[in-house]
């Protein structure tokens, strides 16, 4: 069926099967491969996107359901080519990533979290990250990155 989905403010029209996951629509249909896919059952958080501004798993929704909603992905964060937003910059400065697999999901989760709570403490940050797994960093550097943004 033919659908139009708005991603980072741009409308994309494609002909898809209802069983196409939103994560696969983003990656395979419109080439936005910044959204990563790890477990495809809601546990790892790599596929986290914003759905009308709220963090959600793109592997647990069908693309057809996203019509009429605003989807935001990691590609929409940077203010311009070659530039990073403050959260992305803090990840780089604090070594908040190693392989980077979890990073898009971390950034999207944290974007929504910081919009709601711009000055969280460490415990709140750890709680906000409970739904995002990272096998590299041990989380400490990610927490440090968020603390930098929170202090700014």
């Amino acid at each position: 069926m033919k659908i139009t989905i708005r991603v980072n403010g741009v409308g994309y029209t494609r002909d898809v099967e209802p069983r196409l996951l939103l994560s696969d629509f983003l990656r395979h249909e419109i080439g936005l491969t910044g959204t990563h896919v790890g477990c495809e059952h809601g546990v790892c958080g790599a596929c986290t996107i914003l759905w009308d501004g709220e963090p959600a798993r793109s592997c647990l929704a069908f693309a057809v359901q996203a019509e009429g909603h605003e989807i935001s992905t990691v590609e929409g964060l940077a203010p311009g080519p070659g530039k990073l937003n403050p959260l992305q910059q803090a990840f780089q400065d604090a070594h908040g990533l190693q392989c980077g697999y979890c990073t898009p999901g971390m950034l999207m989760t944290l974007t929504a979290f910081l919009a709601e709570n711009p000055h969280p403490d460490e415990a709140q940050i750890r709680e906000a990250l409970s739904g995002n797994l990272c096998r590299c960093t041990g989380y400490q550097h990610i927490v440090d990155a968020v603390l930098r943004v929170a202090a700014a």
């Binding site: 958080g45 798993r57 647990l60 906000a128 739904g131």
Partner: peptide, 9 residues
């Protein structure tokens, strides 16, 4: 109940 991302939906 689950994580914020799950509670959105």
């Amino acid at each position: 109940v689950a994580h914020p991302q799950i509670r959105t939906r």
